[in-house]
Simulated scan of single mutants.
Amino acid sequence: MKHSEVKHRIIETASLLFYKNGYNLTGINEIISEAGIAKATLYNHFKSKEDICLAYLQFKNINFLQDLEDFASTKTKGKAQILAIFDFLNQFFMNKDFNGCWCIKTVAEIPKDNERIRTEIQSQKNEFIQLITSLITNNLAPLNKTQTESLARQIYLLYESAVGESHLHQADWPIKESKYLCSLILA
């Protein structure tokens, strides 16, 4: 098997385990066993569990941003493309494997001084805010930069709240209510 295929299998396996069980409850030996590889193979690709975690976060984020952008583009131009982020979240929630936000789950498990993982998560959240900013810019009447940035952060906070609360309550009402509040601030 090619080097890149093995690495990808390790990342996919770790991603499933970290998202399902959490970072701290997933051991290196479990990743090795589930991926069907030798310990040496894992360490040929990753120096540490932290490196695997960073690859996991990046893997999840790339797929998330692309899938969300693709989904929003299928909606009618205008506010519907912005509100689509909540429809996308609702589809994600309906997936039997929904377990909340992988970033928030991970940051809750790492020590406060773990700058590498914290910085990666902050970067991903900022990329998401930029995606929302782009949706606003492309779908609403022109706003100044300050207004656009503020609106993007407000929508981001509604989305993040919807993720956490839908996971907590195991219900989609937080997503629906967040979408409604978003529609009000877009009016």
Rank of each mutant, 00 (worst) to 15 (best):
K77T: 08
E34W: 00
W102F: 15
S183G: 14
L131R: 11
T13I: 00
N24E: 14
A141F: 05
L131V: 13
I62T: 15
F92L: 00
K47D: 07
Q154A: 12
L140K: 04
S183D: 12
D113L: 07
K79S: 08
L68K: 08
N144R: 00
L65R: 14
Y156C: 02
A108R: 11
S166I: 10
F128T: 08
T13R: 12
Q154S: 10
A14N: 04
I175K: 02
L181T: 11
H167D: 07
E5Y: 10
L17F: 00
Y43E: 09
S48I: 10
L89H: 02
A84Q: 01
A35K: 06
L16H: 14
V6P: 03
F98K: 01
K179R: 14
L131K: 07
G78A: 05
I132R: 03
A171E: 14
K7M: 05
A72G: 01
L54D: 03
N138T: 12
V6S: 13
S123F: 10
F71V: 03
E50K: 14
R9H: 15
Y159A: 07
D113C: 01
L65D: 04
H3D: 02
L135I: 10
T13S: 03
L68R: 08
Y156P: 09
I136H: 01
Y156R: 02
G36P: 09
T74H: 07
D172H: 03
I11F: 11
L131F: 15
T76F: 05
L16P: 01
I104S: 11
K2T: 01
N144W: 03
H8A: 13
L89R: 06
N61E: 15
K77D: 07
Y180C: 05
W173H: 13
Y156M: 12
Q147V: 11
S166W: 01
L68S: 10
P174T: 06
I110D: 03
T106M: 05
E120R: 08
F98Y: 13
F88T: 02
K47A: 10
Q130K: 12
Y156V: 02
L186R: 13
S178P: 00
A38D: 07
P111S: 06
E149I: 02
D67T: 15
K75W: 07
I129W: 03
K125S: 06
L131H: 14
F93V: 00
F18K: 03
A108H: 06
P174W: 05
N24V: 15
N90P: 04
A55C: 07
C182M: 14
A35L: 07
L158W: 00
S33T: 12
T13L: 09
S123V: 01
N21A: 07
A80N: 09
I175E: 03
Y180H: 13
A171P: 00
A108N: 10
F92C: 00
N29A: 06
N144M: 03
L42G: 04
L54T: 08
K39S: 13
S134R: 13
L140R: 04
T119E: 10
E115Y: 12
T76P: 00
Q130H: 06
D67E: 09
S4E: 11
A38C: 02
L181V: 07
L157G: 08
L16C: 06
Q124H: 15
D87C: 00
L168F: 15
I136K: 08
F64A: 09
E69H: 12
I121F: 01
L16F: 09
K176P: 02
Q147D: 10
I110K: 05
R153Y: 08
T106G: 11
E30K: 14
A35S: 11
